[in-house]
Amino acid sequence: MHARKNKEGGNQMKDNELLFDRKSHVLYSKPCKKEIRAKIALHYPEAEREAIWEQVQRQYAVFLSDWRNGVGGTYDCIAIMSYYVVCKAVTSFREIEEMEENLILPIFRRLKFVDCNKPFWRKLMYKAFVRSKSGCDKWHDYEMAVAPYETDKPIYYEFTACPAAEFAIKHGLTDIMPALCNVDFASMELLHARLVRTTTCVDGCRCDYTICGNKDPYLKEHPEYRDEKGYRRNK
Rank of each mutant, 00 (worst) to 15 (best):
Glu150Ala: 09
Val86Leu: 09
Cys181Gln: 06
Lys118Glu: 11
Asp141Pro: 00
Lys30Asn: 07
Ser65Trp: 04
Tyr44Arg: 01
Cys32Ala: 11
Ser132Phe: 06
Leu173Cys: 11
Arg37Lys: 07
Ile104Cys: 12
Ile169Asn: 13
Gly9Lys: 10
Asp141His: 08
Ile52Glu: 02
Val85Asn: 03
Asp141Ile: 07
Asp21Phe: 05
Lys123Trp: 06
Ser187Gln: 12
Ile80Met: 10
His192Asn: 15
Thr200Glu: 04
Tyr28Asn: 03
His25Cys: 03
Asn214Phe: 03
Leu111Pro: 05
Ala89Gly: 08
Gln12Thr: 06
Met13Gln: 10
Ser132Gly: 14
Val90Trp: 10
Leu42Cys: 09
Ala161Thr: 10
Glu166Arg: 04
Tyr231Pro: 01
Ala161Ile: 10
Leu124Ser: 15
Glu97Leu: 02
Glu143Ile: 12
Cys201Glu: 05
Pro223His: 07
Glu100Ile: 15
Ala51Pro: 00
Arg197Lys: 07
Gln59Glu: 14
Tyr126Leu: 09
Ala51Cys: 05
Val146Pro: 10
Thr74Phe: 05
Thr151Lys: 14
Ser65Tyr: 03
Ile155Leu: 12
Gln12Lys: 14
His25Trp: 10
Pro178Asn: 03
Glu150Arg: 14
Ile211Lys: 03
Met188Pro: 04
Ile52Asn: 03
Tyr225Glu: 12
Asn6Tyr: 07
Lys215Gly: 15
Leu191Pro: 06
Gln59Ile: 02
Arg206Tyr: 04
Arg109Lys: 11
Ile52Ser: 01
Trp139Ile: 09
Asn6Met: 07
Ile104Phe: 15
Asp141Gln: 02
Phe129Ala: 14
Glu98Leu: 11
Asn117Pro: 05
Lys153Gln: 15
Phe120Gly: 09
Ala164Ser: 14
Ala186Asn: 09
Trp53Met: 04
Leu195Ile: 00
Cys201Tyr: 01
Arg110Ser: 14
Gly72His: 08
Asp15Thr: 12
Pro106Arg: 08
His140Leu: 14
Gln57Val: 00
Pro217Asp: 06
Glu221Asp: 13
